[in-house]
Amino acid sequence: MSWSITLTVNGEPRRVELDDPRVTLLDLLRERLDLTGSKKGCDRGQCGACTVLLDGRRVNSCLALAISHDGAEVVTIEGLARDGALHPVQAAFIEHDAFQCGYCTPGQIMSAVGLIGEGQAGDDPERVREGMSGNLCRCAAYKGITEAVLEAQRRMGQDGWEEAA
């Protein structure tokens, strides 16, 4: 049996034929759509490297069954920059040295975009740290990450940046 699903990925409609229902959203993005920005760290919901926005909400794509999300809208790290300009969160990560090896970074950035959209943390660094605790960084760039998230949030408020999601 095969299944055909349609997703809007980074603004573009994509139709995918699935020969097997076991495909996770992460594997679909990486293996079938060649969007390898989303990373597979643990594949078990424990690290956050696979974070994407699914219908506007940050989730772990490794624990989402692709077929269950037929019709959904997905935004990955590849979909943040616009017309060659980095998303404010991407820019702030560079300015604040918020990574070392970079493996966790796409997940961190997608998680930060989700966090800012949720509007629960405000400008309290403690709330930002707690809100970002689903993203582990083995290089321990946490200090820079917290600063980058706070800075990006400030800038997005000033510039009236509209969410890509």
Partner: peptide, 9 residues
């Protein structure tokens, strides 16, 4: 419980 990503799902 869990993380923001997991709670969203």
């Amino acid at each position: 419980g869990a993380s923001a990503q997991l709670r969203n799902a």
